[in-house]
Each structure stands twice: as structure tokens, then as C-alpha cells.
Design a protein around this nucleic acid. Sequence first.
DNA 1: AGTTTCTATGAATATTATTAATAGTTAAAT
DNA 2: ATTTAACTATTAATAATATTCATAGAAACT
Lengths: 294, 294
Amino acid sequence: MIERSHLSILREIERSGTLTAAAESLHLTQSALTHAIKKLEQRATVKLWNKEGRAIRLTQAGSYLLSVANRLLPQLEYADQVIERFARGEKGAIRIGMECHPCYQWLLKVVTPYIERYPEVDIDVKQQFQFGGMKALLNYDIDVLVTPDPAHQPGVTFKPVLDYQQVLAVSTKHTLAKKTQIDPKDLVEEVLYSYPVDIDRLDIYSHFLTPAHCRPKEHKSIEATDIMLQLVAAGRGVAALPHWLVNEYADKMAIKAVRLGRTGVSKSIYLGLRDDDQGVDYIQAFIKQAEHLD
Amino acid sequence: MIERSHLSILREIERSGTLTAAAESLHLTQSALTHAIKKLEQRATVKLWNKEGRAIRLTQAGSYLLSVANRLLPQLEYADQVIERFARGEKGAIRIGMECHPCYQWLLKVVTPYIERYPEVDIDVKQQFQFGGMKALLNYDIDVLVTPDPAHQPGVTFKPVLDYQQVLAVSTKHTLAKKTQIDPKDLVEEVLYSYPVDIDRLDIYSHFLTPAHCRPKEHKSIEATDIMLQLVAAGRGVAALPHWLVNEYADKMAIKAVRLGRTGVSKSIYLGLRDDDQGVDYIQAFIKQAEHLD
DNA sequence: AGTTTCTATGAATATTATTAATAGTTAAAT
DNA sequence: ATTTAACTATTAATAATATTCATAGAAACT
């Protein structure tokens, strides 16, 4: 069994030419090195060096092993380095699962500064899960779950990272644009756009319309935020979205954000992660980055 | 420092799924394995596995190391095999130095059966040495020296492998072809062909002409045996060569071998090798092959 | 609940690696 | 030819490491 130490010895003896010098740079005594090569040759039952006086010269078998050493040692040394970076929490991968459509815009603001500080951490964002975000997390398909609905579950911890108001995005020319607040009944004659998710997971229903027993004239779902807001700007309908998202688009499009109800609809975004990963540096750093972004 | 054993552990745990089973196939107790992975993780200060109940699952760092294991272990295992073959004397290389021009034909007859029995041994034949064959041997430029002149030197041993008569090759139409033996004075009117080496290393001089104070009318040197014998067949001259070599060509060409002097000129070919290599199986086998070829 | 299977742990032991001390070689220097 | 300095080998002692034993604690299965 060729061990790493054997390869190191081969390489170092060849590099330095004498056992004494090689022992020195291997942080061994000359005696230890002599013992080591003796044992190696005995176990392999093959001579690796011919000793001529004090000169030492590789046999054919030794030359072969030296070539193995020169090929494999650098790879092992690189692996050491990589593991060290893992250990220092510098290296890794975060697979982020998104269970919250508009959060993508927000996530970008977290990720952008993060990847500058942790260039060795790979970021991967997934938006589709076969059995829901929580399952994906528990099944190690993702490492961080971005969601507005924290579900309690042993082994997973959620942290709120963003509080915001859900507002109604309307065209600046829309009659509702003049109001300071929207009442549920204001929407009964409107076309409402939303992302394609279940109605009971839409806050505009669960926290606003349904309690008031109202519903919009029509409800259309659409995936892309840009297009949704284009349609809103064109007066084709309204959409309930985070205020920061609407404000961002308000510069470029003829849209406006109006508060929902008298007190507004408050929401939070949570990051969920496995307790396993609590101690992982670069994940901690990611959470921190997200928390300090209000 | 990632050791080979660590990589083996990584791979085996992943392969078998449980520590107990992995320990078994690593020829360890479960306890030893548990201790080993604990120590590994401690030294690297990085978790390589997450234990969930009795299930075990690689962390990112662990997955990385596993990929290293899958890449490097096969190479180490192959190296083990190669070293074993070296140890059994099956594998190696013989660099043969030729100091004897006509011996090349003879060498072929040794090498041909040899390489069938030792397919893993590389054969290399060198004909030119900067400082002579002995120096080449001592300097590890060659491993075996084929020579008619064994020179005593500590560290090198010569073995005779072929005894033969040096004969005169003449055209079948030549007047000398009718003689049963050649006298030195027969050559004073002849053109003598030889290989391009020093005259004092040519037996026809040292053992035949010079003792009789004779010399040929003309002496021409030529490298290629075939062409030399073509010229002899054409009656352009005569050449002193081993009898077996002349006999071999006598089938195809109009040449004949005639004994030199009353008793003939006897020669031997020797194989020289370093005492170092005395114990090397495949070299021993080569010598044997050469010896049993008379 | 009981049983089996797996993992973790501490202490004892066995194995292996390393050293110190020293003698023996070799090559170079005088 | 002797001396010196540098290197290698060897033995016995010691240190470091790996492995086991015995056992307890979890988790999965019946």
C-alpha cells in the first residue's frame, strides 16, 4: 500500500539528493527517514534506491514511484487547501430555494454584495420544488429557503429578514391612483394580476379580500413581474405586490403604489435553514447579509 | 494532510452506507472507524458527514473529498499493482549496449523468445556510447553490455554467453575459397573489409595478422553487414566475421567461410551487468536466455 | 415493549513512528 | 596517508497513533 508519506519521501529525496537533507525538509530526523525507507522497501519487497557509497540513485521501480509522486502529490496538496477553505467557511455552495415570487428582486440585492466577499461560494437559485420548499430543504435539495410562510418543523429554523407592506400597484391614470387607501370593495370591478400560485397563499386574498367577502371581477395569473407591471401601467388591471418592488418600477413605468386598507397589509420574508448548517460560516454570513438589508 | 486511508474511508462509507459495513470491508472494527473519522474531522476542523439518526450524509466538504477519493484512489491502487510487478521481477526495462557489431544478429535470437515471456519488460538497444560501454554501464546509461572484451572492474560482472570461431568470408569464386584454412600471408594481396572500429580491437589483426607481421593490401571499413557481404560476394574483398554469421548469409549469397589458420580464431561474447542488478529477476532471466542459446 | 442494528465513548492495548545515541562509511581536505 | 567532515545505518528506548474491548446509547423494526 503506497501511502502519501512514501510519495513525499520519494520526491524529497530526489529533490535534495541526500537523506539527511531530505529528512530535514520533511521535518524528520535522518534516522526516522532511514527507518521509513527501509520499511517501505521491505514491505514492497522491492528496492527503490541503489546506494552507492553515500550516493543514492533510484531503481526503475523507484523512478516509477517518483513519477506517481509527482503526479499525485500536487493533487493531494490542492485538496488540503480546498479542505482548509471549507474549514474556514470560505468555500461552499448555497442552493437557495425561492417560494416567494417577488423576492427575486430582493434576493439580488443580498447576493450581489455577498458574492464579492465570498468569491469561493457558489450560489444557485431554484424556483421549482416537487414537494414544496420545506421538503426540499429537509431533503438537501436546497440549503436556504426564502419564503413568506415559515412552517415549524424540527431541524429547520426560520429568521425574518424583511418586513414590508403589500400594496396595490395601479396605473397612474387609474381612478384608484388618487385614493390614499384601497378598500376591498374597490377591487370588485377590477382585473387582478398575480403570480401563478394558489389563491390561499396570496395575501391579497387571505388578509384583505376574503375577510371582507369580496373578490375581484377577474383574476389572471402571470409569471413575469415586468410584464405584469406593463399590463398594470397600461390600465389593464391591478396587482398586489411588495411596496419596494412597485417603487422600484415606478421610475420607469406609469404605475403607483396605494396602501391596502387603513393600516396596510404587512408581510415578512423569512429565510429557513437546516440546524445542521447553523455553524457554517458562509451560510451565517449570507443570513447576516440578508438581515442587514432593510 | 489528507491521507490515503482517509480517502478510502470516505469512499467505503459512501459505498456501503453504514459505518459498521464500511468498517467490515476496511478490515477494521466499527469502533476504530468511528474513532478515525472523528479524528479526521477534528484535525481538518471541518464536518465531512452529517449524522441524522443513524443515517449518514456527506457535507459539501465531504462530497468534495469523496470526488478526490474517486479520482486518486484508483491511481494509487494501480501504482500498488505496478510496484508488485516490479517486486516479482516481471516489470522493468533492459537497456542493452552493443559493443560488438555482428552481435546484433545473435541478440535478436535472444530477445525474440525473451519478450514473449516477459511482455512487461521494455527492451532498448543502444549502439553508441560517448565514453565506452563500461562507462555507460557504470553510469546507468545501459543495463547490459554485450561485448567481446570483458574488462575487469569492481561492481561489474561478465558472463560468457557465446563461443564461436572467427572465420574469413570469401566469395565462392575466390581462389581462397578452395583452401581449408587461411594463412596470414594469404591476405597480403587482399582487400579486407571490417566494421569501423579501432584496428587493435579487430581480432583478425590482434590474433592473426599482427603476430605474423602481415597486413592486407587494403583495409576498408563499413558499417552494414549486408553490404559488406554483398561486396565480398562480388569478389571485391574479404571479411573476418563470426562463422555463424557467415553461415547464415551463405544461403542467400555466393560466400563461403574459411577457417583462419590451422586452429582457427576462437572468440567469445560476454554479457556485462552491474552487481546491483544481479538480483533482478527479469535481468537474470535475460542472461539465462542468452546462455542457453548455443 | 421488546428486539435488533447501528453508532459513540472511554480505557486498555497493540502497533507504528520517531528519537537519541552511536558506530560505521565515504568523500574530501590536509 | 591521515584526518576531518558529512552522510548513512543500527539498536534500544520512547512517543505517538491506531485499534480493540467492553459497554452504553440511539434509532429502526416487529
